[in-house]
Amino acid sequence: MGKLTKGQIVEGAFWLILAAFFFAYSFEFNNNIEIYKYGATLWPRVILLLIALAAIGQLLDQRKNGDASSTSKIAAIHEDSAQDTQYNSLGWYINTFILLCLPFAYMIVPDIIIEKTGTPEEGAAKVNIICGAVLFLAYIVISWRNHVGAILTLPLFFAAMMQDMGFYALAPVFIIGVMILMGERRPTRMAMVMPLIYGILIAFFVSLLYVGLPTGYISPFYDFGTWMVNTFQ
């Protein structure tokens, strides 16, 4: 008989709280369907019940067998399991959580500011740019000693800003950012590889396949995106 670790308890609690939350939310669409007496809730509720049962079963199994409970017959992704590194402490999780919130803050905060201050349409773009710059600066400061957190967050920033600033303007910055986070430090290499990757993507998707990528709507990003489309498509 083993004793549950904090991590195992948190993991079990996560699934149980998730199941309880979604079960409670299922009353929002608990309406009758004339031709189907089980309604729209039976299927998700059965899944949630099974999630709760599996979470409890996992806790009981871990309590009985300790770490050995994790050893299945067919464990395909063992090498990915949590490692004893600096990237596995409570402080790291908190730091990473804050980092991951920043891109979502960019998706919400400018709209709130624009709404609260009654900023006219022509000033809204400036609010977006300033918010983006401030949050990106915060990202650099917070992730200074959290390399993995920085890697996890950068693509989310890229995706969150793409609607406003477009693929064409952000992609070169993103390529360089990822290369730096992956350990590349030679400016000449980066200067050579970035245009190559960017060129391949533009040639293949924009020129050859006519894929319409987002141009953004904030000037000068929009102007650049439109110019790229007009030139290469």
Binding site: T71, S72, I74
Partner: peptide
Amino acid sequence: VGAKSFWKGWLSIM
């Protein structure tokens, strides 16, 4: 298949 234990496999599918 694929998970570290049967429970984790089942939770993944769910």
